[in-house]
């Protein structure tokens, strides 16, 4: 790891001023479970590290019938998975948080940090760049081993997949993210926070170098909402999934009134599938409709070569998440 200077201010205004105007100047430490690994691998080389753990207002959760569930950016994944408010109002979110990584990671990793963690793409992690091009500008991912890479949103030049398994759960619930920067606060739907970079040097988040995530707000759940997520993951132990699907269904009678289906590890960003939603709306959830929604979710998927079977896995994950949700299995 390269040397850096370190500060741990108590006010978010101070954080913003201490951050640099360019990526690479400074980084925000908010748990550090991913950032320190990136720094050890010399992928991220901040000259200054701002630990925001002392920003008291970024801790804790609150619930308000109108505003919904507010989750401070520094709430750890453990806290979120055990949070009574989250478990009551967004049980699928708590479940997704409790499935992430390992207990030791969840004890340190924060929800804000989870939104900002960097892709696990092995070309990126080996220092070959987020877009991983060779000296002639050709993609190493397309030439090489892309078994874990994107099947959607993969027209290039980005082929990595977004690493968060919690973000899709939040997006399925319709969450919004609040940021704070030199111009004050701003807020956007969480799905808009994630962007597919077009050039090396761009990041996969709509976060400016001198902004921080302050909180995430999940709107109050409507009546008759059912939610579930499903991971295709090989190991019980600490492992990254091949794909996940998070589903929030609003029922009307025995029919689906509206649905949000979000996949992770399939695209450079959490993938909100309009096609899957449309396939469900107005129908009762059955094995057949769930399967059709799974098929719709991957209708536009395309293989990069070695990752062909992820298309089938995503299809099945969506189907199973929908069936779980309809059965009222929250996990």
């Amino acid at each position: 790891m390269r040397a850096f200077e370190y500060a741990s201010p108590k006010q978010k205004q101070q954080v913003v001023e201490l951050l640099g105007k360019h990526w690479g100047d400074a980084e925000v430490l908010a748990g550090g479970t991913d950032l320190l690994a990136l720094m050890k691998d010399d992928i991220v080389r901040p000259k200054r590290l701002i630990n925001i753990i002392d920003l008291k207002e970024l801790h804790g959760t609150t619930f308000d019938a109108k505003a919904g569930l507010r989750i401070g950016a520094l709430v750890t994944l453990t806290e979120l998975s055990e949070d009574p408010l989250a478990s009551k109002h967004c049980p699928m979110l708590a479940a997704a948080a409790s499935d992430a990584a390992s207990p030791q990671v969840r004890n340190m990793a924060t929800i804000g940090g989870n939104m900002c963690q960097r892709p696990r793409c092995w070309y990126f992690r080996n220092g070959l760049g987020l877009l991983a091009k060779d000296s002639e500008g050709k993609s190493l991912v397309l030439q090489g081993d892309n078994r874990y890479h994107a099947i959607l949103g993969n027209d290039g030049p980005a082929y990595f997949v977004g690493p968060s398994t919690v973000a899709p759960a939040l997006i399925a619930y319709g969450a919004r993210i609040r940021l704070f920067g030199p111009k004050g606060p701003r807020e956007l739907p969480l799905e808009k926070f994630f962007v597919i970079p077009k050039a090396e040097g761009e990041r996969e988040h709509d976060l400016q170098p001198n902004e921080i995530v302050t909180e995430i707000v999940v709107p109050p759940p409507a009546a008759n909402v059912r939610a579930a997520h499903y991971e295709v993951r090989q190991k019980e132990a600490f492992d990254w999934p091949y794909v996940t699907a998070s589903v929030v269904l609003q029922q009307e009678g025995d029919k689906v009134h509206s649905a949000r289906v979000v996949m992770s590890h399939v695209a450079p960003i959490p993938w909100l599938s309009e096609e899957a939603s449309q396939a469900l709306v107005g129908k009762a959830v059955t094995e057949a409709t769930a399967d059709a929604a799974g098929a719709a979710a991957v209708k536009n998927a395309k293989s990069l070569g070695r990752n062909k079977q992820k298309i089938k896995m995503a299809h099945v994950a969506v189907k199973r998440a929908i069936l779980r949700a309809a059965k009222g299995e929250q996990a």
């Binding site: 092995w122 070309y123 992690r125 080996n126 190493l140 132990a237 600490f238």
Partner: peptide, 25 residues
């Protein structure tokens, strides 16, 4: 041990990507 022919390097030289069985597996 996943090797990349274009660059000649090992792609998974850390323990998050060189995957080992855990206690529950």
């Amino acid at each position: 041990k996943v090797m990349d022919q274009a660059t000649g390097i090992m792609l998974n030289p850390h323990m998050d990507s060189y995957r080992l069985a855990g206690l529950g597996d």
